[in-house]
Computed example of a mutant assay.
Amino acid sequence: MASSALAKPQVRGLLAKRLQFHIVGAFIVSLSVAAFYKSAVAEPRKKAYADFHRKYDSMKDFEEMRKAGIFQSTK
């Protein structure tokens, strides 16, 4: 009968071992998500803003708005 009995589960230190595993996993996942966001969202957004400001002509835009009648103080 003694050979068919189940062994006692390890209880001492189980929480610390599981927490260590999950903390390392969470750290790796968070770093990978941050790297993905930077490459997929932040860099293209910075490039789009840089392209816009490189090509933007404020005087041309002002003249178009003035001709459209948006401003009341300029004719």
Rank of each mutant, 00 (worst) to 15 (best):
S39A: 03
F36Q: 08
A48F: 05
R54G: 07
L31Q: 12
L15A: 11
I28S: 09
S73F: 10
E63C: 11
M59D: 04
A26S: 14
A68S: 14
F62A: 00
E43D: 13
P9C: 01
A35M: 05
M59K: 05
G69V: 02
S4T: 12
V11E: 04
K55F: 02
Q10V: 07
I70G: 09
A26W: 11
F21C: 07
K17N: 02
L31F: 12
D61H: 04
V33P: 03
I28T: 12
V24C: 10
R66V: 01
A34S: 13
Y49M: 15
K17E: 03
F52K: 04
K75E: 08
P44V: 05
Q20Y: 04
A7T: 07
L15Y: 03
R66P: 02
K17P: 00
Y37E: 06
V11F: 02
F21Q: 06
Q72A: 14
A34Q: 09
D61K: 02
P9E: 01
D61R: 02
A42H: 11
I28Q: 15
M1A: 14
E43K: 11
K47T: 13
K75P: 06
I70S: 08
I70K: 14
K47Q: 15
P44N: 05
K67W: 06
Q20R: 08
D57Q: 03
A35H: 01
A50I: 02
R54A: 07
L6W: 08
V29D: 09
S39Y: 05
K55M: 04
A2S: 14
K67V: 06
H53K: 02
S4Y: 09
G25C: 02
D57M: 00
P44G: 04
D51F: 10
I23G: 04
A5H: 14
D57A: 01
G13E: 01
P9S: 00
H53Q: 04
K47E: 13
E63W: 06
E63L: 12
D57S: 03
I70T: 13
R66A: 03
T74H: 13
M59F: 06
A34Y: 13
K38G: 10
A40G: 05
Y37G: 10
F36N: 08
D57Y: 01
K38D: 11
I23E: 09
K60C: 00
L15K: 07
A2V: 07
F62Q: 00
D57K: 01
